[in-house]
Nucleic acid binder design. Structure first.
Lengths: 98, 98
DNA sequence: TTTTTATTTAGATAATTATCTAAATACAGT
DNA sequence: ACTGTATTTAGATAATTATCTAAATAAAAA
C-alpha cells in the first residue's frame, strides 16, 4: 500500500489515472496529453505499474495501458478503514448521490 | 486537495493521523511515538495543519492536536469521485461489513 | 537490410523534502 | 527574575525524485 500512496502523490500520475479511467490509452497517447518528455511519462507509468494501479498490454509496436480497477477498490477500502471508521456511513451516503 | 495528497504521501504523517484517530494528543506525546526529533514532528504537524487534516488547540504550555474529520470526509468523497465511479457501490458495500 | 516509429533505459541535473542541531518563543513553577 | 518544560522556527545537509537528453530495444515499413 506504501507504493500506492507514493504513486498517487504526484499530480501528473493522478492525471494519467483520471484519463485512463475514461479510456485505455497507449503510452504515446498519454505522452501527447502532457508537456513533458516521453521518458518522463514512461517513468511515471513505471511507478504506476509497480504500484499495480495500471496494467500494460503490448500490441505490435504500441503498449496500451489501462486501469487496474481492483487495486483502486482495495485502496479505497484501505483508507476507509485507516482513516474513515467514524465517517464511513456518511461518506457512502453522500457519494451515492452523484 | 493538492495539499491533502501531499500531506498523506509521507508515512510518518499517515501514522500521526492514524494515532490521532484513536485519541487526541499533544505535540510532545506525538514526538514520543517516533524516533525523530521534535523539530521534525513539528514540521510534519505543520504540513498536516496546512492541509487542514488536523486542528491545533493551545492549552497552557501544551498544544493538543486532533483530527479534522470533515476534511477526511471530503477527501474520501473526492477520490471516490475521481477514481472510483465504476466501483463505488461495491466499495461501500464491502466497507460496511466491518 | 535500412529506416522509421514507439517505448524504455541510462545517466545527469535541478528541485523538493525529510531530517538534524541550535536558537527562539511562550509559559509555568520556584 | 530565573529555571525548566513544550513547542516552533531558522538554517544546513542529505536523500529523494521529477525532469531532461541521448542511447538502447523492438518491431513495422520501405
Amino acid at each position: 500500500m506504501k507504493d500506492v500512496w507514493n504513486a498517487l502523490a504526484d499530480p501528473t500520475r493522478r492525471e494519467i489515472l483520471t484519463r485512463l479511467q475514461k479510456q485505455d490509452m497507449t503510452a504515446g497517447e498519454i505522452v501527447a496529453c502532457f508537456s513533458v518528455s516521453g521518458a518522463t511519462i514512461s517513468h511515471h507509468l513505471k511507478i504506476l505499474r509497480e504500484a499495480d494501479l495500471i496494467l500494460a498490454q503490448k500490441e505490435k509496436q504500441t503498449i496500451t495501458y489501462r486501469l487496474n480497477t481492483t487495486v483502486f477498490q482495495d485502496f479505497l477500502k484501505h483508507i476507509a478503514e485507516v482513516f474513515g471508521n467514524a465517517q464511513k456511513e456518511e461518506i457512502y451516503h453522500e457519494a451515492e448521490q452523484n
